[in-house]
């Protein structure tokens, strides 16, 4: 094991994929620029050449269709967009073509493409640079939707996504890029799509979480342990298809569930998980399932509004304490000078 940042782990996965398979190509706006999409695409062009690694016209929709065409012609395209929000222009090619190709042609032709999308938070990202629309993608049959939390999963899941024969939406939270974690030495280390992971075992409540919110959950769980509440944290890793078995087993044990989501609450992954668990464990649950998600409002840009809008470990502690009719003082817990940055490393601009 060695320590890598999340963005370096992404970079390694891309390097490995392109080295072991000539059919992998990489493109997107900024892929070859000096910043290399938050360092994730650095050095790829030098190593693999301009044919396989290239910047592209600002044409999100057509370039997604180009990926579909290139993939049925035998390539494995990996696209990147600096923010998910720009990719909304490509919903036609994604939903009407990529997601349906294998189905609507009776299994004759599939579309092995990977689309990396970055979700922003804080620093005034606002209404059109911070949308967390995993539920949109998860609603479409035929797409796989992946949301890694750790550097290890970032690498393993990206490699798995690239070599999956189906279209995969790979969602990276901007606040995870500089997060450091252990990554196996194995060059071609894979993590299965469709499997979640128990980040921490516990007995009293199941926290189901995804992406950046899993980091907040880890902090919250420590505080709750100090107060006698043992949390089991399940990191979803793949939000479609969901690994229901692992969630069910945990809820059978803890009999309580709270789901954390990086998106707005209505019609979210969290609301669907709560609905399914409630239906299945109606007579088992000891308290009402809870959700911590964003309000059903667009992300406000102002520093003076985003603090209340976004959720963190404090909110999780308070909500779970409520489930046990407890009061936990969080006034001194996880206090930081600015709410709108993931750490001192982040100085803007995006």
């Amino acid at each position: 094991m060695r320590e890598l940042t999340f963005s370096k782990a992404i970079n390694e996965a891309l390097e490995t994929a392109m080295r072991i398979d000539d059919s992998v190509i990489k493109y997107g706006l900024g892929v070859t620029d000096p910043l290399g999409v938050f360092n994730t695409t650095l050095d790829l062009e030098e190593k693999f050449g301009k044919d396989r690694v290239f910047d592209m016209p600002t044409s999100e929709n057509a370039m997604t269709g180009v990926a579909v065409g290139a993939s049925i012609g035998g390539l494995k395209p990996v696209m990147t967009h600096q923010r998910l929000d720009f990719f909304l222009l490509a919903m036609d090619q994604l939903v009407n073509n990529a997601a349906k190709w294998n189905f609507m042609f009776g299994g004759n032709s599939s579309v092995p493409i990977t689309i990396r999308l970055i979700i922003g938070r804080g620093w005034g990202q606002g209404p059109t640079h911070a949308q967390s629309l995993q539920a949109w993608f998860a609603h479409i049959p035929g797409l796989k939707v992946v949301m890694p939390t750790t550097p290890q999963d970032a690498k393993g899941l990206l490699l798995e996504s690239i070599f999956d024969p189906n279209p995969v939406i790979f969602l990276e939270h901007r606040w995870l890029h500089n997060m450091v974690g252990d990554v196996p030495e194995d060059d071609d280390f894979r993590v299965a799509i469709g499997k979640c992971e128990i980040l921490k075992s516990g007995n009293d409540v199941t926290i189901v979480s995804m992406s950046y919110m899993s980091i907040e959950a880890i902090h919250a769980a420590e505080k709750l342990t100090e107060n006698g509440i043992s949390c089991e944290i399940i990191d979803l890793k793949t939000v479609s298809p969901v690994d229901w078995e692992t969630i069910y087993e945990s809820v059978e044990k803890t009999k309580r569930i709270i789901v954390l989501d990086t998106s707005s609450e209505f019609a979210s992954i969290a609301s669907d998980i709560v609905a399914k668990v409630s239906t299945k464990f109606f007579n088992v649950l000891k308290s009402a399932p809870q959700i911590i998600a964003l309000p059903d409002v667009h992300s406000p840009t102002s520093y003076h509004l985003s603090g209340n809008y976004y959720k963190d470990a404090k909110d999780i502690v308070v909500e779970i304490a409520n489930m046990f009719d407890k009061n936990i003082d969080v006034s001194d817990f996880m206090t930081k000078e600015h709410h709108d940055i993931p750490g001192d490393w982040f100085k803007g601009p995006f």
Binding site: N61, A62, M63, T64, G65, V66, A67, V68, G69, A70, S71, I72, G73, G74, L75, P77, D92, Q93, N96, N97, W101, M104, F105, S109
Partner: peptide, 20 residues
Amino acid sequence: MGSTAIVGGTIPVGTGLGLS
């Protein structure tokens, strides 16, 4: 390699085949 129903839907797909 396929025909689709959304107007213009295969223009980029055929272009992508050209890329391959």
